[in-house]
Design a binder for these strands. Structure first.
Lengths: 239, 239
DNA sequence: ATAATAGTGTCTTTCAGACAATATCTT
DNA sequence: AAGATATTGTCTGAAAGACACTATTAT
C-alpha cells in the first residue's frame, strides 16, 4: 500500500481525521464536550475531541469515533451517528484536510458518573487523557479549525430530528418518566409543548413502553418508561 | 506537507475519493447515472462516477464533486448535497479507503440535452470521458465497492426529504406546471397524492410562484410555475 | 358535443392546541 | 387538608383526505 500514498494519478493525500460532537443535557441546557488540545496546532485550546484515522486499528471511520469516545470518556455513546464530512485546504494549518464528524448523545448521569467533575457547563475535569469541559452549545464561541461550524451542524441536526423522532430520549437514562421526556424535548427544541398533546403524540407513536415501576418526585409518582426500540424511530408524518 | 504523509502519529493515510449519485427522472422512473470504470479495480464495470480528491485543484470535497460532474456530464447540478461518507478497510481492494458521497439532482431534459443518447433507463451513451448509462434505482443490482449501499442511501435520503421539502422540484426544469410537480412528487415518493390537497399544501408553503406563461397539453393549458427560492425549502411542520 | 386535462369547492374526519379536571403522592 | 406533581378528558379550530364539481383547451 505504501507506494500508493503518492500515486501520480492521485497526488498528495488529504489528512483524514474524525471529530466527535458529544452532546448531553446538563439541567435543561444542551452542552457539548470539549477537550483541551494536547499538541499543535491550537495547543491548549478547547476543541472537539477527535483523532487521526488509524487504518491498522479502525475498521472504518465510525470505529475511529468509537475509539476516540472510549479514550476520552471511557464508555460508548447510546447514540452515535455520522454527521457530515468537513474538508478543504484552509481548515487546518497543516494542509488539505478532511474530517468525518460524528454526533453522539449521552445521558448526563452516565457522563458525570464516568468523569467526576463534569457536572454542568463550565466545569472542568482532569482525566488521564487530558482536560475536558462541558460548554453550552449556544455559548460555544470560537473554536479551532472549523469546529464551531461542526458544532452548529450537530446542534441543527439534533434539533431538526428531535421534532419528528425519538432522538431526545437518548439524552435520558434507560428508564425515564413522561415528565422527564417532556422536559428533554422542550430543552432540545427550545419550545414549550403542551403536556397533554405531547403525551398523546408520543403514545400513538408507540415507541416507548411502561416498565411497571414508578419514580417518586414530591407529588404523584410518575410511571417509568423505556424505549421499545434501541434505535431511532421516526414519527409517522404525511406530506 | 510531504513528510507528513507518513507521520508516525498518524500512520498510513486512507485513500480519499468522492463519488456522486446523480439522480434524474426518466418518465416516471427515478434513475441514477452510472459510468463505466476506465481502470482497475473493477475495470469496465458500471459504477458511480467519482474520482480522487485533488488537493492542489479542489478547494474542498464539494469542489471535487463538481469537478467530477463537469467532467462526466458537462454541467453543474441544480441540486448538490453531501450525502454521507463511506469508509473502511474492506470496501476497496486497494486498501483502507474513504469516499465522500454526494447526491445530485438534475432535470432529465438537461441531462439528455448534454449527453445525447441518455433517453431512459438502459440507454448507453459514449462520451469523451467514457461510457455512461442510466439505471432505474430500484433495479440497480450489484455494483463495485459499496456503491449499491451508497445508491440506496441516496435514494432513501431523497425520498425522505421529498415528503417535507421542495426537493423533487429540482428534478424539473426551471419552469414547470402544477401537474408536472404533482407527478414528480408521486414518482419520487411512490405514492398517489390527492391533486387538490397537494395543491393546497404546496401553495400554502409559498415556495413556488406563477411565471404568467402557460403550457399546452392536450386539454386545458396549465400555468407555468418556478421556485421562489433557488435553494431547498422545507415545509412547516409541528412536532 | 366530446374527450382530455387543469383547477376549485365542499364535506367529513382527524388532529393539534388550549385548558380544565381528576388522580396520587408527600408533608 | 394542603400542596405538589402526574395523568386524563374535553372543547375548538385547523388541517388532511376524499371526492365532486367547474373551467379551458383540442378534435
Amino acid at each position: 500500500m505504501a507506494e500508493l500514498a503518492r500515486n501520480v494519478e492521485r497526488g498528495p493525500t488529504p489528512i483524514a481525521t474524525v471529530d466527535v460532537v458529544l452532546l448531553t443535557l446538563a439541567g435543561d441546557r444542551l452542552c457539548a464536550l470539549l477537550a483541551e488540545r494536547a499538541g499543535e496546532p491550537f495547543k491548549d485550546e478547547w476543541a472537539l475531541p477527535g483523532g487521526y484515522v488509524h487504518t491498522e486499528e479502525d475498521a472504518d471511520a465510525e470505529a475511529t469515533a468509537r475509539r476516540v469516545l472510549r479514550a476520552k470518556v471511557g464508555f460508548e455513546a447510546h447514540w452515535l451517528e455520522q454527521l457530515a464530512t468537513f474538508s478543504g485546504a484552509d481548515r487546518d494549518p497543516r494542509g488539505w484536510s478532511l474530517t468525518v464528524a460524528y454526533c453522539a448523545l449521552v445521558p448526563h448521569a452516565a457522563l458525570a458518573a464516568a468523569i467526576p467533575g463534569l457536572s454542568g457547563p463550565g466545569a472542568v475535569a482532569g482525566t488521564p487523557s487530558g482536560r475536558l469541559t462541558l460548554r453550552a452549545v449556544d455559548e460555544a464561541g470560537s473554536m479551532p479549525f472549523d469546529h464551531a461550524d461542526i458544532l452548529r451542524a450537530a446542534v441543527g441536526r439534533v434539533r431538526g430530528k428531535s421534532s419528528y423522532s425519538s432522538l431526545p430520549a437518548f439524552l435520558l437514562d434507560e428508564e425515564f418518566t413522561f415528565p422527564e421526556l417532556h422536559s428533554v424535548y422542550q430543552s432540545v427544541l427550545g419550545a414549550t409543548l403542551d403536556r397533554a398533546g405531547f403525551r398523546r403524540k408520543i403514545m400513538e407513536q408507540g415507541f416507548i413502553e411502561e416498565t411497571g415501576a414508578e419514580k417518586v418526585s414530591g407529588g404523584r409518582p410518575a410511571r417509568l418508561h423505556r424505549l421499545v426500540e434501541r434505535n431511532l424511530t421516526q414519527f409517522q408524518r404525511t406530506i
